[in-house]
Design a protein around this nucleic acid. Sequence first.
DNA 1: TGGCGTACGCAAACCGGTTTGGGTGAACTG
DNA 2: CAGTTCACCCAAACCGGTTTGCGTACGCCA
Lengths: 333, 333
Amino acid sequence: MPPRPRIADVADIAGVSRTTVSHALSGRRPVSDEAKAKVIAAVKELDYRANQLAVNLRLQRTQTIAFVMPDITNPFYPMVARGVQDTIRDAGYQVVVCSTDGDPVREAAFLSDMVSRAVDGLIIDLFRTPAHAVEALVGKHTPAVMLGPMKAPPIGDRVHGDDRVSVAEATRHLLRSGRTRIAFAGGPPGIGPGGIRQSGYEDALLGAGVAVDRKLVISADYTRDGVRVAVEAALADGLDVDGIVCANDLGAIGALDALRAHGRSVPDDVAVIGFDDIDAAALVHPALTTIDNRAYEKGTVCGRLLLQRISGELDGPFRDIIVPGSLVVRDSA
Amino acid sequence: MPPRPRIADVADIAGVSRTTVSHALSGRRPVSDEAKAKVIAAVKELDYRANQLAVNLRLQRTQTIAFVMPDITNPFYPMVARGVQDTIRDAGYQVVVCSTDGDPVREAAFLSDMVSRAVDGLIIDLFRTPAHAVEALVGKHTPAVMLGPMKAPPIGDRVHGDDRVSVAEATRHLLRSGRTRIAFAGGPPGIGPGGIRQSGYEDALLGAGVAVDRKLVISADYTRDGVRVAVEAALADGLDVDGIVCANDLGAIGALDALRAHGRSVPDDVAVIGFDDIDAAALVHPALTTIDNRAYEKGTVCGRLLLQRISGELDGPFRDIIVPGSLVVRDSA
DNA sequence: TGGCGTACGCAAACCGGTTTGGGTGAACTG
DNA sequence: CAGTTCACCCAAACCGGTTTGCGTACGCCA
């Protein structure tokens, strides 16, 4: 089994120098038709493909962008990833995905590692690493886009939804149907997107002249089981509730589990609203009313932004792009 | 904004040679405590991190493994990916995911590209590229594991389920409950895992003395909509059926859609069984009886196998590892 | 025939690390 | 005191491409 052919092998067979092979293949300098033909013949004969490692080192780029996300098994992220990949593929880029489980150690490790691997761009969705720490990890050489509503100072463009507005709208949807004891089930305080979504919930309540009752704010995490347990505990505790706005769909599904376990019917006794509109939202029973988080579109926006930053087509101040969500009314509310 | 520090900068500040810096950091040769201390101080001062591109070129490895899959938004694959990542992370490897949509052009392009990027290992799940073509694309230098029941000649280890046995068991489950008109809904003939699963279906039927009725074999694809449409068409056509075994869960969910649209109750009129046990299987109504495809375990097995091949700890003939599935009985059958 | 411009090919430098092979001085040995 | 051994460090080669800068051959023109 022969080793992979190198450019020198091609040059030997074609009877020209390595330089000429390089120029013939890249077209960056003119090469006579005769030489070009010989090079192409040699390439075909050897099945030569350039070693990208060498190209990367010389050019200091990798045609790779990294996507650092909290959880690859949360369907929102694969959908974003697909949007990213569909957008950058034609430009010759690949995407490497890094699932951190929201662990700050792993978040930092991935970020640092990707930078030293010289990825050309980063898409970052962090749970527990504060913005100022990101700056130290990533530096200023690598274009980055922050996915989600991370607080300033950003080190790159941001693309996010108008979560606060969307959740307010969802909450008003419940208020309009006459609900008055509306709870919010989110993640741990200050972690992930729950905080800003909770603000939207409070906006709507206050706008309707309803006081925010601390007992109605349930803090859990963003998993099905976590929210199920938290809601069950609240119900067992005698919580008086006729609607639950959840920080994400997985959590909302957990809330459905809990309500079913306590014999409450949805939406008659308690209405439930999620966030994300993952595929499963339409599958559960009753089908989940939720907010479409536009995962695929966000992916394409991130991809385009990065491509533009890399090419220099876009520079100057960081942009802040909002991909608005929209309420999808199904059966649960 | 200064450029990234190089090893020469560290060497200058520490007052030693680049060689010594390298040895001090890698530990591959002994270095005096004094020199080591100076190197470490300089590294800290500069926040030096080695440029992995250079390391990769010199060492001819990338600490990267590529996972080429048909569809990243099919929840089975993210779960496998998580298993892979959890297994290889501690060894310092990352995973890049490539979603091909089953397009043979893209399958070939990704494979070829990953090899020229010198990934250290490949996990491959192909829909439309035949095995012999894979060999030409991948060559013999890159360890690979084929996920799924690809036919010979393999170019690497294989890990797959005993799909034929599992589906036979599932089919017998229906036969035992007195069903006699059992259909099979799979992908297009010869594409993807449908074929071998169909064999299991036929095994069970023949084993029970039931003839296989061609009209009961519905060929569609592996998406929810594709199977819904195909099953609706069959029902509209007057198909007499009291059970459907599907090649995957997404398809089974589509079958549920179709049955509901035609007013058939599940499982009373028609029983439905899926394959994979994705999260959604437990969410649909009625909850789907299915075969647990052990996605996460398969990911860990692939990861371990690759690590062993890369390290040379494992060599010799390609292995064929079976991760058996198991029937998960819920409400739909 | 001499002067000049153009087209094209090549040697060498470069990217930033790791590894090899040789050299030096100190400690130890007989 | 000469001969070894050992611990340590360094210069140079190397990975495999791309790019720079220069040299040469050739055509064109006066």
